[in-house]
Structures are given as structure tokens and as C-alpha cells.
Amino acid sequence: MKPSTLNTINTHILPRFEYFEPRSLGEALELLDKLGSEARILAGGTDLLVKMKTGALRPRYLINIKRIPGLRYIRVEEGYLRIGALTTWNDLEESPETALFPALLDAVKQMGGLQIRVMATIAGNLCNASPAADSAPPLLVYDAEVVLASVKGVRVVRLEEFFTGPGRTVMRENEMLIEVKVPLRKGSSAFIKLARTSMDLAIASAAVYAEFEGDVVRDVKIALGSVAPRPLRARRAETAVRGLRIGDPSLMDALEVVKEEVSPITDVRSTAWYRREVSKVLVYDALVKSFERAGGVRA
């Protein structure tokens, strides 16, 4: 938000709304179907309530889903890590399963302060659809999927197709994100966030998932945050580095393509020029970090 607007807004109070506290998923989906675009789902509230205080959002109805049983879980099942809609960042932080996804764990450790991690949910971070969402780059490189439910039923959407722009997703008005599914993989991964302080939104961030053969990059997935209208999967960069050696001087040259794939803006946190330049470096660093995590030693 712009600092100038903060001074004119009273963050001590919240505008009025009609409040609902469904006790089952079915009840929540019925409400969502009936109330449509004027309703917002409340989970952690760390984004929604701030937007309501600053006037960026003025929902007529609030559907608090926190009393719905069975939406808060972290399970490894059938080759997937399954994260329920009410699972918080702190839940992930304290769960041993998260270590199976080092890039996600990197993001969890760097996200917000303790209180925000205790309150905020992963699902909310995705639905808020900020280009700077810390959970997005790691989940993108793991090929995560999101499960969207409505009164009509359930559909599964690849995260890569989920974001459509700043604050926008493919979710329909009557849909709710009920689960994040992350496939278990054998490769290595890392996430690097560049921010003024770790409490702050990212200037830019990069996640890499990679499988190595010796020091040769085989399968590789690259995603970036805060450098495009939505969290970005950098497919051209993936093609460019596949087959190259870590430590090969041409690796950094190959990553020049990252600068073409991103489309950053200039804002209070950084300039478009800097974001473009640093994107390449962050991807390089995340790739090297993945390599080192895989047990590799640079020549």
C-alpha cells in the first residue's frame, strides 16, 4: 500500500460486514455460491483484514472458515505432500515433512515474523495471488497443484495455471481452495529471497528444483517471484541450463535469458532494471545452492 494513504486511514477499526461462521465445508460452499463476488473467505486474515482496514477491499460478507473441522493437516500420501486449506506457515515450520521440500522450507523460514507465520495460511498466500507470494516460487518448481471446491464439485488446477495477474487467479467466485498437493521428488531444491529485511516483501525471489548427474544439470525447474505480474515459471531458462555443468562459465551466460523472461516493474522496493539484473543472479545462486544440497562440490 502507498504510505501516503496509510496516514489518512484508521487502522484501529474494521468496516462493517455481514458475518458467517460455517461449521462444515458443504455449508461454506453453499454460502459462497449464494453470496458470490461480494463475499470473501477469512482464514489467517493477515492479508484480508489489512486490505479491509486500508480500504483496498470492502467485502459485504465475510465467511470465516476457521471453525470448519478437517481442513488443517499436513500429510504425505500417495506420492504427494498434502496441505489443508487452514494449515499455517508455522504448522509447516514445525512439521518434519516440510524438510522433504527444502525450497519450501527456505520460504517458510523467511516468511514474515513469528506471529504472521502462526496466523497466515499457505492457501491464503496463494489465493491472495501477490506476485511476491513467498510460497509460490517453491511450489511452482515442485509442480504443485491446488484443489478447488465448489457446490458443483472439485477440480484440480496446476499452480502454474492458477495465477493470472496481480491479485487474480483462475478461481471462480463460488470456489474455495481446499488443498495444496505437492508431488514428492527425488531431486534437490532451494529458494532465495532478496528483501530489505526478512519481514519485508521480496524485491525478487527465485526457486530452483534440479536433478544432477555429477555436476551436470539434468532435470531442472525454475520459478521467480516479484519480477512479473504473477509468480513466474521460467521455462526458457530451464531449457537454457539443462545439460550444462555447475561451475561452467557459460552457465551464467545461459541465464541471460532470465532477463528476457521477466517483466518487472519499478516500485517502492526496487527498480525494474535492478530486478531484471538480480533475477539472473538469484537463479544462479539457487541453482548452486541446490547443487551443494545434492552433495555436489564445485570444481
Binding site: G45, T46, L49, V50, K53, N90, I116, V118
Partner: peptide
């Protein structure tokens, strides 16, 4: 009032939360 400063921290069910971003209900 927007979740940056932590001055309003209380424990809810033993965990630290921001009371300025929590509905009383």
C-alpha cells in the same frame, strides 16, 4: 494496525497472534 510491529501480540491457545488482525468472534 497492519501486522508489522507486534506490539499487540497476545497468546491465543498458547500461540502468539496479532490482536489487531484478529476478530474478537
Amino acid at each position: 494496525g497492519i501486522g508489522e510491529c507486534g506490539a499487540c501480540t497476545v497468546l491465543v491457545d498458547g500461540k502468539p497472534v496479532l490482536s489487531c488482525l484478529t476478530l474478537a468472534v
